[in-house]
Design a protein around this nucleic acid. Structure first.
Lengths: 128, 128
DNA sequence: CTCTGTGCAAAGCGTTTGCAAACGA
DNA sequence: TCGTTTGCAAACGCTTTGCACAGAG
């Protein structure tokens, strides 16, 4: 598993304890929204401000260190960018479960004009 | 093509000129965000208010008359619910092109625990 | 030492709410 | 007539911005 520190350095972002902890929490939780992230960070940094979170989340997204998951009727969640994978999202509670391309889910695309940068496949169901 | 009026009636929503025009514009434009919708509606209803749009869009979504397309770094767009289909979304300008399940794109799902309500497949590329 | 990052307070902006009047059934 | 919808204004809440100080390199 890649060191969080080196990920920041690769993108020429300064290594701060706040950033490292943000990344650690996102990686541990798998999928987390701003508010949950804030609560978790408060434990370690009681003085941390929401604007720091927003600024860093913005930079992480710009640098594709994390990826944004849009969930209808819920706040966006974030995950560490690793491999592309589909999500199973609960329409009720917004819970996200990772699926796998390959054995579980496969997508076949033919005759598509235009370069593909990224595929987002969300399957909505109910886990409640 | 189904009458817009009867769609509203099916959902026990009152038929108002504002609603009919909203649906007409969304159907014509294919994919449209709140602001573009507002501008278009202003032509026909100079006094229409944004809150009317928000209220109706909310109701259309609740009743699944329209569907929401989340586009990173752009405002959500809306389309009339018809068949499920994948979208090709330009990462730069947010433009949306409809694709087809079947010949163009197919998804195979195996061993997935949990009922599937809905599948959203967005392919990101560049049209600029 | 220099430049970036942090925290705070305030501003900004899209969206929602409350209410009276208008309208649809 | 009765319940719903509309438009307006105000409230709301999330996100962004400006700035001074702190911290990383």
């Amino acid at each position: 598993m890649k060191l969080l520190m080196s990920i920041l350095k690769e993108h020429k972002l300064k290594v701060t304890p706040q950033r490292l902890t943000m990344m650690k929490i996102i990686r541990e939780k798998g999928h987390i929204d701003i508010d949950q992230l804030y609560v978790n960070l408060k434990n370690e940094f009681p003085a941390i401000s929401l604007s720091t979170l927003y600024k860093n989340v913005g930079q992480f997204l710009d640098n594709e260190i994390i990826r944004e998951i849009a969930i209808p009727n819920h706040k966006n969640k974030y995950e560490i960018s690793f491999d592309e994978h589909p999500h199973f999202i609960c329409s009720e509670c917004g819970n996200v479960r990772d699926l796998k391309f390959g054995d579980e889910v496969s997508v076949k695309i033919q005759n598509l004009t235009g370069e593909i940068k990224n595929i987002s496949l969300n399957i909505y169901g109910n886990c409640c």
